[in-house]
Computed example of a mutant assay.
Amino acid sequence: MIHIGLAALLAVVPPPIDQASVRDAALSSGFQEAYVGSAGPIARAIHAAYDIPASVTVAQSILESNWGRSKLSVNELNYFGFKCVTPTSPGPIALRCASYPTTECIPAPCHPVDAFFRSYASISDSFRDYGRLLTTSSNYAAALPVRDDPDAFVRAVARKYATDPEYANKVIRLMDLYDLRRFDR
Rank of each mutant, 00 (worst) to 15 (best):
S38H: 00
S38A: 04
G40M: 06
P41A: 02
P41V: 01
I42C: 02
H47S: 15
H47Y: 09
A48H: 05
Y50T: 10
Y50E: 08
I52R: 08
S55P: 08
S55H: 04
T57V: 14
T57D: 02
A59E: 02
Q60H: 12
Q60E: 13
S61H: 07
S61N: 07
I62T: 05
L63W: 11
E64C: 13
S65C: 13
S65L: 13
N66L: 10
W67D: 00
R69N: 06
S70E: 04
L72Y: 13
S73M: 08
V74K: 03
V74H: 02
E76R: 14
Y79S: 05
F82A: 10
F82Q: 14
K83N: 09
K83V: 10
K83R: 14
V85I: 15
V85R: 14
V85P: 06
T88D: 15
P90S: 15
G91K: 13
A94T: 11
Y100Q: 15
E104C: 11
C105M: 10
P107N: 00
A108T: 04
A108F: 04
P109F: 06
P109R: 04
C110I: 07
P112K: 07
V113D: 05
V113P: 10
D114W: 10
A115T: 10
A115H: 09
F116Y: 15
F116W: 15
F117D: 09
I123Y: 00
S124L: 01
D125I: 02
F127L: 03
F127V: 03
R128V: 07
D129Y: 09
Y130W: 11
Y130H: 14
